[in-house]
Amino acid sequence: MKDVHMPNDVELITIPGNWNFDYRYFAGETASRFFAELKNSRRIMGTRCGKCRRLLVPARTFCEACYVETVSWEPVGEEGTLEVFTIVAAAFPGMPPPPFVIGYVTLDGADTSIANFIKGVDLSDIHAAGKSLLSRPRVRTVFSAEVQGRITDFHFELI
């Protein structure tokens, strides 16, 4: 900008801002049943695509790849394989104190992976922990004592 807009004696102003809106997300019938199965039966369910035959976990109404409705509900195993992960180092309100592990797990019988916290990992040495997690270890689903019908009702632990 040219000097015409900025005489020497003008203080530059910075205006603070904040957005804090409330939303309510309607999970819908399929996700609601998935969460009800967590709460009432302590089991993780998928839905199968009739076209590609994949068991999609978490359960969903349609297969995005084939663009058709899923046809049936099936439970998956309590154990699975940790496919990919990250060790989170940044603190954020509402989250566990860092470091903690989040990973995507393919539960036995499923064809897709589901994200959740991976607990029971010795994080005293991040690099040693990372190295062992890169071997795609087996994990087990562990449900919380108090279940609320949310994704945080369970986590995974190394076997």
């Binding site: 996700a31 992960f85 990250t86 989170v88 940044a90 990973g103 995507y104 990372g130 997690l133």
Partner: peptide, 22 residues
């Protein structure tokens, strides 16, 4: 996704880390 992934506190950079782990 507000039901399945947002409660885990993931952010964009975490996906890059997950990609590298893969």
């Amino acid at each position: 996704d507000p039901a399945f992934e947002k409660p885990l506190g993931l952010q964009e950079l975490d996906i890059s880390a997950v990609r590298l782990s893969a």
